[in-house]
Amino acid sequence: MSRIEGRFKQLAMQGRTVLIPYIVAGDPAQDVTVPLMHQLVESGADMIELGVAFSDPMAEGPVIQLAHERALASHTSLSSVLTMVQVFRETDATTPVLLMGYANPVMHMGYAAFADAAGAAGVDGLITVDIPPEEVDGINSELQRVGIDNIFLVAPTTPEERIAQIAARASGFIYYVSLKGVTGAGNLDTKEVASRLKLIRKHSDLPVAVGFGIKDAASAAAVATVADGVVVGSALVDTLAQAFAGGGDQAVALGSAGKLLKQIHQGIANAAS
């Protein structure tokens, strides 16, 4: 069992929802990321999703676009993200880490070379926004070789037969994109999410996490009642950005991110009880 599946199983037995914060690696500086990852774990993160910056982040809303730009300005590359994971792993061997990014940097490194390096660094899962099942076979075999889960997105527009097709290739968990739009947009409809998750579960025994629209403790709590995992991205990235922009030093910024995550964690716990 992979570290990701293990974490979902462990929390499911405790009746808890997996909390997955998303940050962009190297935003706003490379040396912020590893301390921030530890801070997030301390504040209730069960798993960490590290965004890998790309020059053309087509699926992102304005908040995360800016984070990608800041990470690139601090010269963050896919290789440097892998180094961050490796350093994080020196003191945390249990928290699953997944990377979320776009096809081109991974393809440019080479699927086999990426799989080797990511496996060695301690990466547990990969989400590539722009590699749908139709294009996935090349990378999937390499990821399987090193035991990295390939996490697929299912969208509100995904027809049922495609859900089955995705479920057949997925491992780790399935990521349900809760709205039509970019990251950080709109308000999600919990009822709609619940009915879509039911459909996904008809085709897969994997846990289902929900992301793209969870802003605060209340929306996280609402989603937690139906999902196995909750991803919080834009709200966290924005909190960090504002703390740094307000002239705060690293400790202050990490503190504010930790505080937000604790609130969300508490919201989820209250919903479960």
């Binding site: 590699i131 749908p132 139709e134 294009e135 997105l153 299912v154 969208a155 509100p156 995904t158 994109v177």
Partner: peptide, 20 residues
């Protein structure tokens, strides 16, 4: 059938757009 021109082309987009 996959929209490929040799090794080029294809459909590298997010899942939300695949149905469209």
């Amino acid at each position: 059938e996959q929209g490929r021109y040799g090794v080029y082309g294809g459909k590298y987009v997010s899942e939300t757009l695949m149905a469209a």
